[in-house]
């Protein structure tokens, strides 16, 4: 067992147009976490809501001293709202969840138990999901399968927002674009121990859902980028070299054919030259990647969350 303790806790919740849910949300979290008996804060990020969410949250700070409300200037989307919340969070343990009351704050205690038992990241698994089938469950199922196939990680419910992290993991994490969708997967190359815990899931009682079907293409592209970044960032030159290798083979084959052929054509040598150029540029991209990684100072930062084990 490790000696890591969840000495303090930050609960980070991005919200957007949730005026009906704001008060029960904050009260629910506060009651559930107070029962755990550790110092905590609730960081609610108002992602540019256009309804009364902001005023309601402001008035709630009076009765809940643990509440911290971060207001964004406009609607920046979930990734950035989450990032704003994580940037502000000060706890040793950090829990993220949705602002729509579909996650149950009484599950937080069980997530923290797993963190203290040795996990770095604990992801919620909504085994009994209370959502519409076509719009939410099917795309989510496809996305999870894709992630499993591409990354080789068996994770049932990547899309569940209720997750708990050790602070070290969040500090080592580089989030950009829409990468919040893969936040659990992104922690793995850091050497983090990932666990899944079944959590309760409630149907939406108020407000409207902010997801749609149109994200499948984007998820696939982002997933591909993530896969390349996590798996090949240690040796991009090699990776780009492998990518270009078939072109080199093709180029040599075309050159050989052109040399051995009795008639002289223009087509084969030209093809050979084009293929060779593609190979060369691929290699150049690899070199450029090495340069980018080298100058980013990434190697100097602690990349791997590692710790001693005491059995």
């Amino acid at each position: 067992m490790t000696s890591w303790k969840a000495e303090s806790l930050s609960v980070v919740v991005p919200v957007f147009d949730e005026e009906a849910n704001a008060q029960p949300l904050v009260e629910g979290i506060a009651n559930a976490v107070r029962a755990l008996g550790i110092p905590f804060e609730i960081v609610v990020v108002d992602d540019g809501s256009r309804d009364r969410t902001r005023e309601i949250l402001r008035s709630l700070t009076a009765g809940t001293p643990e509440l911290v409300v971060v207001n964004l200037r406009r609607n920046f989307g979930q990734t950035l709202a989450l990032q704003a919340g994580l940037d502000r969070a000060r706890g040793r343990a950090i829990v993220t969840m949705d602002g729509d009351l579909q996650n149950d704050p009484t599950d937080i205690g069980r997530l923290l138990e797993r963190l203290e038992a040795g996990a770095d990241v604990v992801s919620g698994w909504r085994k009994q999901r209370k959502d519409t089938l076509v719009l939410r469950k099917v795309p989510s199922w496809i996305a999870n399968k894709l992630i499993q196939v591409v990354t080789g990680i068996a994770i049932h419910d990547q899309g569940c927002s209720l997750k708990a992290y050790r602070r070290e993991v969040i500090e080592a994490l580089d989030l950009y674009g829409d990468m919040h969708r893969f936040i659990a997967v992104m922690t793995l190359p850091l050497g983090a121990v990932l666990e899944e815990v079944e959590v309760r899931h409630h149907p939406r009682v108020a407000g409207v859902s902010k997801y749609g079907l149109g994200r499948v293409f984007r998820v696939i592209v982002d997933l591909f980028a993530l896969q390349m970044l996590t798996r090949f960032r240690e040796s991009p030159l090699l990776w780009f070299g492998m990518l270009g290798a078939p072109f080199l083979v093709g180029s040599l084959a075309a050159a050989l054919l052109a040399l051995t052929s009795e008639e002289s054509h223009l087509v084969l040598p030209t093809t050979s030259v084009f293929l060779a150029m593609t190979f060369t540029s691929s290699l150049m991209f690899g070199l450029l990647s090495e340069l980018i990684i080298e100058t980013s100072g990434h190697a100097r930062r602690r990349r791997v969350v590692s710790r001693e084990w005491h059995d």
Binding site: T61, L67, L175
Partner: peptide, 28 residues
């Protein structure tokens, strides 16, 4: 994507207008 990934730490695209909190509340 590679450049973004390795610069992600320096990029903050959101803008905070105000933070509401109780003095002495929350965590230090």
């Amino acid at each position: 994507e590679l450049i973004l990934f390795f610069q992600a730490r320096n990029i903050r695209d959101y803008r905070v207008t105000a933070v509401y909190e109780t003095p002495g509340g929350g965590l230090p």
